[in-house]
Design a protein around this nucleic acid. Structure first.
Lengths: 256, 256
DNA sequence: ATGTCTTTGTGAACGCGTGCACAAAGATTG
DNA sequence: CAATCTTTGTGCACGCGTTCACAAAGACAT
């Protein structure tokens, strides 16, 4: 779901597949939980189950990092936690700014998950002068005017945009101009960013719409199944591959 | 991005690829914006630019829905809005419950994007008795005890989980038992759900970690380019498995 | 040491998604 | 009506990601 990332095809030796990178945090979380329970080693099968993935996939993912397992035994939990953390760049501290301190921005500021993994909220920024100075999550909100100064003084390279959609593009441009090269965008807009800037998008509305699609499909299938059962048609016994039906889709007539 | 969809066996239900489904909301948003500006038609090129995708991809995506374009002209905006809405199931009303009314849950409840697209917040549910009755987003929070009743009475099939990680699994089980078949999970946990239940996951921490990875890679590339003398990858295979960190010392334990 | 047992690491096959490039279709103009 | 121009719809090839299946590697018992 990341958009606007620019890949370099040249570095193939070090190339960890994007899909693998996206799963590393998942493994890391499961491993951290094991670590807290002082579990010394874990097999790919167990860890895969905890992370909700296929064990072969997990092993292949780890193979991109190197051979960190012991055959017949499994993986050393502590060691793997360290390796993944290092690979993800979590052994260093990442200052982050959150722009747009509305309901969502405030929720993000209060979210504990930030601080727990090498991310530090360096500043909260909002365009509303009335917000300036108001404490949110134990930190005073600063005005947008300070944006550039904050970015530069703190060496911020990751910005979180939680503004209304209309302001997002402009905010992203200011962030980028000031030195930010990675953006986590919560605003429901497609950001246009220059080469070399990574943007990841989190969009509630889109997620819900995707769920609605599947939900509708389930309901449609159920109805179709019921209708088929009720009709004279022989109810296709095997309900394995959901009967897609003789395309029950009606060619809708064009409105207007 | 949201990941972690429990994908069913490659059921290619309607023949619409999952990747396409994930982009339809994007197109829909762009089209809605055009519609509001009373733009009658739009070419694949223009629309693709607005949605931030390749135009060939967009055309192929639309081809799964049917041939709704006119060669030499483009697509009828209103018609396409209607078709995509219908395909996504947005022509009907989807009651949604939000469980866990903390900072994030409250932000979600206040999020306007819900109501705007066929989604209606049917109830806000929290386990804290002190929250019960408190109005959030103009709606009284209800206690978890009411969960099953609410789901059934409102015919809710989509649930949003915004609880702490520890409670998420249990909440999901109660939701599913009560009839929910699609879950949008904000809690940093992998939910175990039965076949037939769709789960989409939104995880801030994971998104940030992925950004951090790329950020680190960028920094590493810059350094490598500036000072070519530094070794890129410490050869770990040379010494025995006794020596843990390639950096020469004890593996760092991540903070909780 | 030798054999057995467990689990990793990976070669290979397969399927999905993407993007190119172009023919077909319709609008538009002369 | 014919010619030209624009834009769609799609066949095709390619690359990435997933999964299977198994040989290799190490632990452990005898």
């Amino acid at each position: 779901m990341a958009t606007g990332r620019t890949h370099r095809p040249a570095t193939r030796s070090r190339g960890i597949p994007e899909a693998t990178v996206a799963r590393l945090p998942l493994y890391l979380r499961a491993l951290t939980a094991l670590s807290e329970r002082s579990v010394p080693t874990v097999s790919s099968e167990e860890l895969a189950a905890a992370a909700g993935v296929n064990s072969a996939k997990l092993r292949k993912d780890f193979s991109y990092l190197g051979s960190y397992g012991t055959r017949g035994v499994g993986y050393d939990v502590e060691y793997l936690v360290y390796q993944i953390s290092r690979e993800l760049g979590l052994t260093q501290d990442w200052p982050v700014v959150i722009v747009g301190i509305g309901n969502l921005g405030a929720a993000l500021a209060n979210y504990g998950g930030f601080a727990s993994r090498g991310f530090r909220v360096a500043a909260l920024i909002d365009a509303d002068p009335a917000m300036a100075g108001k404490p949110v999550a134990g930190m005073p909100v600063q005005h947008t005017d300070e944006l550039e100064k904050i970015i530069e003084e703190n060496g911020v390279s990751i910005g979180v945009i939680a503004t209304p959609a209309g302001a997002a593009q402009q905010v992203s441009e200011r962030l980028i101009a000031a030195g930010v090269t990675s953006i986590l965008n919560f605003a429901p807009t497609v950001l246009q960013v220059p080469e070399g800037v990574d943007v990841r998008k989190v969009d509630l509305s889109i997620e819900l719409q995707i769920l609605a699609f599947h939900e509708q499909r389930k309901a449609g299938d159920a109805e179709a199944a019921a209708a088929a059962a009720a009709s004279v048609l022989p109810p296709r016994a095997a309900d394995g591959p959901t009967r897609k039906g003789p395309d029950g889709d009606v060619p809708a007539v064009m409105p207007a």
